[in-house]
Computed example of a mutant assay.
Amino acid sequence: MGSFVELSGVGKTYQEPHGRTVIVENFDLNIAKGECVSLLGHEGCGKSTILTMVAGLTAITDGGILVDGHGVEGPGADRRVLFSSPGLLPWMTVFDNVMLSVHQSHRDASGAQCEAIVDDYVRQLGLSEVRSQKAMSLTLAAQQRVGLARALALNPKMLLLDEPFELLDPSSRMDLQTVLLDLHARHSLTTLMITRDIEEALLLSDRVVLMTDGPKATVGKIFDVPFERPRVRADVLSHPRYGDLQQQITAFLDEESRTHAA
Rank of each mutant, 00 (worst) to 15 (best):
E6F: 02
L7S: 09
L7T: 10
G9E: 12
G9R: 10
V10Q: 07
G11Y: 12
K12W: 07
K12T: 15
T13F: 07
T13W: 08
E16H: 05
E16G: 09
P17C: 12
H18T: 15
V22H: 09
I23F: 03
V24E: 09
N26M: 08
F27H: 12
D28H: 09
D28Y: 03
D28G: 13
L29K: 12
I31C: 02
I31Q: 06
I31K: 08
I31T: 04
I31W: 06
A32W: 10
G34D: 10
E35L: 03
C36Q: 08
V37T: 01
S38W: 05
L39S: 08
G41W: 12
H42S: 12
H42F: 09
G44T: 13
G44H: 04
G44Q: 07
G46E: 15
K47C: 13
T49I: 09
I50T: 08
T52K: 11
M53F: 03
M53H: 03
A55T: 12
A55Q: 11
G56D: 11
G56I: 08
G56V: 13
L57W: 10
T58Q: 13
A59C: 05
I60A: 00
D62L: 06
G64K: 11
I65F: 00
L66Q: 04
V67S: 04
D68F: 06
H70V: 11
V72A: 09
E73D: 14
R79T: 13
V81W: 11
V81M: 14
S84Q: 14
S84V: 02
G87D: 00
L89K: 00
P90H: 02
P90R: 02
W91Y: 01
M92L: 09
V94F: 00
D96S: 00
D96T: 00
S101V: 13
V102D: 09
H103K: 15
H106M: 14
D108R: 11
G111Y: 02
E115H: 03
A116G: 02
A116W: 04
V118W: 01
V118R: 03
D119A: 05
D119P: 02
D120I: 04
D120C: 05
V122W: 13
Q124C: 05
Q124V: 15
Q124K: 12
L125S: 03
G126Y: 09
G126I: 14
S128T: 13
V130R: 09
V130A: 15
R131H: 09
Q133G: 10
Q133A: 15
A135D: 00
M136K: 13
S137I: 10
L140Q: 09
A141N: 02
A142N: 11
Q143E: 11
V146T: 04
V146I: 07
